[in-house]
Amino acid sequence: MTGPALKISSRGEPPYGRGLMITPGFVDVHIHPDKTTWGSGWMSRVPAQTLTDIIGNDLRAQLAFQDSVEDRAYALMSHAVLNGTMAMRAHVDVGPQIGLRNMHGVRAAAERLAPFLQVQVVAFPQFGLLSNPGTLDLMEASLAEGADLVGGIDPESVDGDLHGHLDAVYALANKHGRDVDIHLHDVGADGLAQLSVIAERTVAEGMQGRVTIGHGFALCDASHPDLGSTLDAMAEAGIWMATCALGADPVPDLDLFEKHGVKVALGSDGVRDAWSPFGTGSMMDRAHLLGYRTGASTDAELERCFRLATSAGAELIGSAEVKNFSGPESVDRLEFAANSIPELVVDRSAPLRVVRGGRAVALQA
């Protein structure tokens, strides 16, 4: 195993004077640490036109990595800790092409960071659940070995079987007592129709409040006539939306989501992987990008972006350290040189200190 370890610093408390802002920690609700090249050499990306092309590029890149999953994941996750992330939901690929090695690697990295970082692992069928023979058995095995959530991906465009895909996902969730987190990249009427079925199925299974949709690009077209009814169905089912404010990908109308009662939280998605050369693992950066992409300008809009990266994420994944934040006396907190939350989001400020259990986190040589 390589990479620096983390430790608790013994430095004393700084004075709480003007210009020192104390905030809760960040929560990254959608990240793929098994795919990252963080801490490794540069990877040149191959152009891709379709989701199938991108997934194929991703698999080839993963099979060619020289550094272990654990080392790469640890490099990224420890960097996230030092930038204020206290909890994350990690989507980890499962499939016969790679077996369970990604889950084992991310779990090993998470164990090394256990004093500093809460990690939920999603068993994610990136290469297809039903359309990739052998994946369903490996999903079962990953859950038996401790994966925290059941993942899904584009039931129609990747698996070609909406109801069959959902049957498998919800059956696994019910059998193992797990929540569900489904990537949905499909857009337009087809994407909204899938979301409506997912909402209906969630209510039928009695899983209200236990399902998350990642990306949900179909929900980002405010002109679509069925958007309002789809959002209402999601709100009734208590389905969360995890958005990542990626590149040219669509972003949700946050006012509209609030109007319809759909909860939103923020994540990084891929960080310097085969999908994109961008990403830093910093949720402050991600809050800034969400504000920029959604045209945030008022203090309230910028504060909302920060909230989606902190307390909203903590509500989704159950991070007590972030949920229980109560101000400067909190033993788990971030300290910034700033005068306001909007200033933090615009400046993309790095924390002066990340405090866990009342003591500052620092790199150990």
Rank of each mutant, 00 (worst) to 15 (best):
S68F: 10
V46N: 10
G41W: 04
V94W: 14
E13W: 15
G19F: 10
I22C: 07
A61H: 11
A73R: 06
L63G: 13
G56H: 15
P14I: 00
S78M: 01
T37G: 00
A64G: 03
S78V: 00
F26H: 10
S68G: 13
V46A: 12
T36C: 09
L51F: 05
R60N: 11
T36A: 09
H32W: 05
F26L: 12
D93I: 01
L63V: 09
V94E: 14
Q49E: 15
S40P: 08
I98V: 07
V92C: 04
Q97P: 05
E13C: 01
G39I: 00
L51W: 09
G25R: 01
A80S: 15
F26E: 06
I22H: 08
V81M: 07
Y16P: 11
I54F: 13
L51Y: 10
P15G: 00
D71T: 09
D67S: 14
G39W: 12
S68H: 10
D58R: 07
G95K: 06
A90W: 07
S68M: 08
A90G: 04
W38H: 15
T85Y: 07
K35N: 12
P96Q: 08
S9R: 15
R72Q: 02
G95M: 07
Q66E: 14
A5D: 10
T50C: 00
A48C: 08
N83F: 02
N83W: 07
T52G: 13
D28M: 03
G12R: 05
R89L: 00
M21S: 12
S40V: 13
G99H: 06
R45H: 14
G39Q: 03
T23M: 04
S78E: 03
E13G: 00
G17R: 11
Q66F: 09
M21C: 08
K7N: 09
G84M: 01
R60V: 11
D67C: 12
I54A: 15
S10G: 08
G99N: 05
W38K: 12
P24I: 01
T50R: 05
S40Q: 15
P4D: 06
L51I: 04
Q62Y: 02
V29A: 04
G39H: 08
G95W: 12
R11Y: 08
S9H: 13
N57S: 05
R11E: 12
V94T: 14
V69Q: 01
Q62C: 00
P14N: 00
T85L: 06
G95H: 14
V81F: 07
A64R: 03
R18V: 08
L6F: 09
R11G: 02
L82V: 05
V81L: 05
I98F: 02
I54Y: 13
P47N: 07
P4Q: 12
L6T: 01
G41D: 07
V94I: 15
W42R: 08
I55Y: 04
P4H: 13
L51N: 10
D53H: 06
P33I: 02
I98R: 09
M43R: 15
L63P: 08
V81Y: 05
R45C: 02
I54M: 15
I22M: 09
H30T: 06
D93C: 04
R18T: 10
R60I: 10
